[in-house]
Design a binder for these strands. Structure first.
Lengths: 204, 204
DNA sequence: TCGCCCGCTATACGAAAGGATAGTCGAGTT
DNA sequence: AACTCGACTATCCTTTCGTATAGCGGGCGA
């Protein structure tokens, strides 16, 4: 069974592939970014399973996923990620990914997951998929009201008060009020800073 | 030789520890976050080497580093990180870290680095430390002029044009101009969106 | 040397944001 | 029933942003 693993962190790539080789008896090829993975698939492909890191140079979300799937002649291609959340996993699976492997999964589960996917099944850890979205019970959620949260989302998109008002079907003045109270709660002195704080908290 | 490795990604933690055990003959203990690492150091410590992930639950930069160093009775404590840049590494080493291991290092170098640190030396990969700062030759750097870059930094801090002007010792109108051209280059429609784009690019 | 681009400054104006105060309305408390 | 509280609207006013247009000086290449 031949596997290709692409991850920009050499330490992670090396140790995971060493683990797969020893514990699973697979033959593992390594790539340090997406273009390198493409090269390998073209020259040595198709592989029985391709594992792509979701955040590495050259990866552009789900577009590259389907491209890789074609390059690997419809043999399974799965995503692996340390930070991505449930929604991204769902989109990936819907887009035809053979599986989604969070780096928070146990190493021994990895072996069975890999075997499972090679057999053509779709894999995703149940506990990960049933978990709440990270931002659903985010610390900021309790500080801000629902409305303020919606307005904050608009701020993060760079929308003007007027645009936010249109989207939420409210008056512009109301948005201003929300922006003001929301800035106070976040200890931001203006909308831009509020948006940056939300971004730093990992929101939106 | 007893090593403690703390990382919130189980897959990474497991495979790295397996690698250290097999290839290096170390006895490796694992912790899933900082508090768990503290527990282990209290009960089973000190370890000959402690590896702490820089971004995991409970870690608060360098404060926790020195706390861990005390808990481990001044035996070496090193940081390991996937995303952190050179400046963080330098601060960590200055704060008494036994080493800084980027996840982009080769697995076989890990073994020698670990042995090196256990002997009481300070370790950091030379290529990593001499590398340019990630944002020094960032794609945006070539698109934007130096001034525009400085102004963008101000935007990301949520500063007003007037404040940025004071900091850069320029006139407010000049800042406005830079903001405008910078927004055009970034395809942002206002300052907030420009700041968000910079943030997404990993700047500041 | 001429033209040209770049960084900077200036003036001016409309649009947007920010702040203060006040009032309506409905839901839930006491 | 009186009360609080959150969400919403309204008016008024000041500050800040965003855009346009024009001018100046230095550096650089044709």
């Amino acid at each position: 069974m031949r596997i290709l693993i692409a991850d920009d962190h050499e330490l992670v790539r090396d140790t995971i592939s060493a683990f797969l080789e020893r514990e699973g008896g697979f033959e593992v090829a390594k790539a340090e970014d997406y273009p390198a993975a493409v090269e390998l698939m073209k020259k040595r492909g198709p592989y029985d399973l391709v594992l792509l890191d979701y955040s590495m140079p050259g990866m552009d979300g789900l577009k590259t996923l389907s491209a890789a799937k074609e390059l690997n002649r419809d043999k399974p291609v799965a995503l692996i990620s340390g930070a991505a959340d449930k929604t991204i996993a769902q989109e990936a699976l819907a887009a035809g990914a053979a599986g989604f492997l969070p780096k928070s999964m146990a190493a021994k589960s990895l072996i069975s997951a890999v075997k499972f996917m090679i057999m053509g099944e779709q894999y995703a850890p149940l506990d990960f998929m049933t978990a709440e979205d990270a931002n659903a019970n985010h610390p900021l959620r309790s500080k801000l009201s629902e409305r303020e949260f919606q307005v904050l989302e608009g701020l993060c998109k760079g929308q003007s008060n007027k645009e936010i008002a249109r989207d939420l079907d409210l008056q512009e003045v109301t948005i201003k009020l929300h922006v003001k109270t929301l800035c106070r709660k976040l200890e931001a002195k203006n909308r831009t800073q509020a948006a940056m704080i939300a971004k730093e908290e990992g929101l939106f």
